[in-house]
Each structure stands twice: as C-alpha cells, then as structure tokens.
Design a protein around this nucleic acid. Structure first.
Length: 504
DNA sequence: CTAGGGTTAG
C-alpha cells in the first residue's frame, strides 16, 4: 500500500481497530518515520479519544509540524486534559515556534480550564502581536474567554473593536455573554442591533435560546412571546430541541405554565433536556404531582434520567412536600440505575426532609457522610429547614458549619438570626449581629421584580413608601386570607427602571 | 487541527 492510500484510509478511520491496523501497516511497510503519515495517525487516534495512543506516537516522532502540535494541544483541550495540553504547549514554545490561528483558540479554553485567567490575557497579547486579530475564529475565542472570566467590559471592548470582523458566532457570544452576566436589557439591545445588521433568512438559530433566556430571566413574558412569534415566522414550528427547551423553560420562569405545556405538547424535537425542563417547570409552580407523573411517563418512553433530571424531580418533590415520592425516587435511582448521587442530590434530600420537618433525619443523613464531602449547599438546605420549623438546636449546628465553610455569606447569619428572632431569643440575635459587624458584613437587601407592559416593577422588603402600597397590602391580605404583619408580607414599592414611581 | 445555543441548586 502506498503512503497516499494509507493516508486517505487513516483519514476515514472511525474505529480503534481500523486505526491500529493502518498504524501497523505503516510500520510493516517501513513507511515511518514520516511526518505526514504520523500526523494522520495522530489525528485518527485523537478523534477516537485515544489520547494515550496519540501521545505515545507523538513522543516518538523525530520531526513534527504545526499540524501535529496543534492536534495534540487541541485534542487534550477537547478532552479537558488541560495540564497535558499546557505541557505540550510549553514543549512547543521550547522549540522556538510561534502559535498560529489553529493553536490560539484552544489556549483560551485551557486558561479557563486551569483557572488561570492570566494565561488567557497573555494569549490575547499574542493574538495582537502576531496579527491574528482579523481572523474571526480567533477573535471569537478571545471574546468567549473574557465572557467566561466574567469580565464583560473586556468582552465588550473586544466586540466593539472588531465590528468589521463579526459573524453570527460573534453576535451570539455577546448576546449570551450579556445574559450570563445578568445584563438582560443589554442582551436584548444587542439582539436588536444584530437584526439590523442581517436580513431575516440569514438569521442564525443558535442565537435564539440565548435571547429567550435573557428575556425569561428578566421576567419579561411579553418579550418571550415576541421572540416566540419571531421564531415561528422565521423558522416555522419545527425548531430544534434547544429552542423548544428554552421556550418551555422561560415561559415557566415568567409564570406561564400554560404556555410551557403548550410548547411541550407541540414541539417536534424532544430530548432528555426537554423532559427535565418541563419537570422543573412543574416544580417551580409547586405542581409536584405533575412532575412525578411526567417523570414516570418519561421513563415509559425510554428516556434514562441523568443527574440533572434527578435533581429537578427531587427539588420538585421538595417544593410540594412529596416526602415519600422523593425518598422513593432517590433510593430507586441508586438501586435500579446504579446512580452515584452527587452533592446536589444530597442537598435536595436534605431540603426535602428539612422542609417536611424531619430535621433530625436530615442531620443524620449528613452525619453519615464523610465530613469533608458535606458541602455548604447541604448545610444551607438544613439551615433553611430549621428557619422554616424554628429549630434552634439543629439550626445552630448547621449555621456554625456554614460560618466555617463560607464565612462571608451573609445569608447564613441572617438565617440564624431569623430563628432566634422567631423564638424571641434576643441574646442570640444580638450575638449574631455583633459577629456580622465584627466581620464587617453587609447584607444586600433582597429584591424581586416583575415586568408589566415593558416596565420593571421592583419590590423591596418592608418598604411602604409607594402610594399604592396600601392597595397591594389589601390585595395580598385577601389572597392570603390570614392575619399577617406588614413585615411578613414583604410589601414594597413599585419602581420603574429609572427609579421613578409608576402609577398602575 | 481553531469559535457560539438549552435542563438543577438555595
């Protein structure tokens, strides 16, 4: 067999055995060493995720080209083996070579993967110095890097500096970046800008889940509906699964379970995430029975739940007080599916037991675990249960664990304080407050808001300064039909975005 | 050989 033939065979290999056979042939026919052929073998191994095989060959190669270095760096990165990727990159630099536009994008992923943003910033410098700023793929990876670091301002400056070299990926990165940073109105603004720059049929459907999520997290159902209409007009009803999933999720987040159900019942593409999303929508709306029903139906249809599905169903049971169903699902996941419960699942179970008032049982569950594997979220769930059921003994245990684990989390101090307060334990209250002062911790006030007719109405706890607060108070009183103090109601004032009052 | 979207959690 000729080199050429083996080369093209290698490029079409899709299994371990065919790749190994081709590799063996190159050796048998004394075709090695040969950079082109060896690089083909490297690529074939890495495509199959056989990094150890690739590395063994790579280390033996007497000669390497840019392609072979890039394959190793990119595939280690792809396999989340960031430190191996760094080692290869360092060896590469030792040879005195400079990275090219294929080398650079994985370097930003490595920087995030190893948690060293300095490395990424240095690579950004390399991009500029080596003149790769005009290659859109490279610039997009720089943009993604700054977004993943949480430095939106840096991302925005990269975005603005490259208005001549943008593609749909660039726009999508910026829109989803704003959304991830909680800058929802900026995300919407960016989406509008994008639409101005391209005509309808060129529109990229990958942007749609991002914009839906920004609208949904803002709680703006009108915008979600608007984007939904836009999707139907431009893409028809048979959107792909992530779009349907985003619609279900965000209708749910905006409080319209009916619309979520509607999408769920009519979408063309359904996957595990679709089921999980719908289950968690029912959970959010306190409809645990529906969640359990859907969970069972999902399994009947042959979907195997994953870790996220399990978290969703457990959280759902928890919110609806379905103790037995939750326990049953948790133990059957372990026995029937050999599932290894994660920290989140234990936190859900503690939450479930705690809400139902089984605080001792919840504490026992945590005490059975290795103390190093008990997370803050588990103690946090227990503490929340103690607040609900005014249990000071277990509450103190949980709170003191949390003070060790997350000393700067103000919510934990406030929670313990709340238990003391509800039991009239004045000394406890002042001790916790003194502790907070000593650590100079300040609690940011909780705020909730709703969007009505495109305007954001914010509510802070215990504030009655709005002229309509009396009316709101009365309405809440009627709804709750119980004797509540002003403080319990959390009545606030309505504020517009620019802090001017809005008259309903 | 390089870049982008969806699901949990208090």
């Amino acid at each position: 067999m000729s080199r050429k033939l083996l080369s093209s065979l290698l490029r079409s290999c899709t299994t371990h055995s065919t790749t190994s056979q081709c590799h063996a042939q190159t050796i048998l026919q004394s075709l090695l060493p040969n950079v082109i052929l060896e690089t083909d073998i490297l690529l074939a191994y890495t495509k199959l995720g056989l990094m150890a095989h690739a590395r063994k060959l790579f280390d033996k190669m007497p000669q390497r080209n840019m392609h072979s270095w890039n394959i190793m760096i990119a595939s280690y990165t792809h396999s989340s083996m960031y430190f191996d990727a760094v080692t290869v990159f360092q060896a590469f630099k030792q040879c005195g070579s400079l990275p090219d536009h294929y080398t650079l994008p994985p370097l930003f992923k490595i920087s995030i993967g190893i948690g060293e943003p300095c490395f990424g910033r240095m690579c950004h410098g390399l991009v500029v110095k080596l003149g790769y700023e005009e290659i859109v793929v490279v610039t997009n990876s720089v943009l993604e890097f700054y977004i993943k670091c949480g430095t939106v301002s840096q991302a925005l400056s990269v975005f603005s500096n490259h208005n001549a070299h943008r593609d749909s990926v660039t726009w999508n990165l910026m829109i989803s970046g704003f959304g991830k940073a909680g800058l929802y109105s900026d995300a919407v603004h960016c989406f509008r800008e994008m639409l101005k720059h391209q005509s309808g049929y060129e529109l990229d459907y990958m942007t749609l889940p991002s914009i839906l999520s920004a609208c949904g997290k803002e709680g703006d159902m009108l915008k979600v509906k608007e984007v939904h209409g836009f999707i139907v007009r431009n893409f028809g009803f048979h959107a792909d699964a992530p779009i349907g999933n985003a619609l279900i999720d965000n209708y749910g987040k905006c409080g319209s379970l009916k619309d979520s159900e509607n999408v769920f019942n009519t979408v063309g593409c359904v996957n595990l995430v679709t089921w999980t999303t719908m289950i968690s929508c029912y959970g959010m709306h306190g409809k645990g029975e529906e969640s359990v029903f859907l969970f069972e139906k999902m399994m009947e249809e042959g979907f195997r739940p994953n870790a996220v599905t399990l978290t969703a169903i457990l959280a759902s049971c928890s919110h609806s007080g379905l103790l037995d169903q939750g326990k049953k699902i948790f133990s059957s996941m372990i026995s029937d599916y050999g599932f290894e419960p994660t920290a989140e699942h234990y936190a859900c179970m503690v939450d479930l037991l705690g809400r139902c008032g089984y605080l001792e049982e919840a504490l026992r569950l945590l005490k059975r675990m290795k103390s190093s594997s008990v997370t803050g979220s588990m103690w946090g769930a227990l503490l929340a249960g103690c607040v609900m059921h005014k249990n000071v003994e277990i509450g103190e245990v949980a709170a003191h664990q949390l003070f060790q684990l997350e000393p700067n989390n103000t919510s934990n101090y406030v929670a313990l304080c709340g238990i003391y307060q509800s039991l009239g334990m004045a000394r406890g209250v002042s001790t916790v407050r003194a502790k907070m002062r000593g650590l100079s911790l300040v609690k940011t006030p909780g705020c909730s808001w709703i969007n009505i007719a495109g305007r954001a109405h914010k509510f802070y706890q215990g504030d009655l300064s709005h002229p309509l607060s009396h009316m709101i108070f009365q309405t809440l009183y009627v709804i709750s039909n119980t004797q509540l103090s002003t403080n319990d109601l959390g009545v606030g004032y309505l504020l517009h975005d620019d802090d001017t009052f809005v008259m309903a």
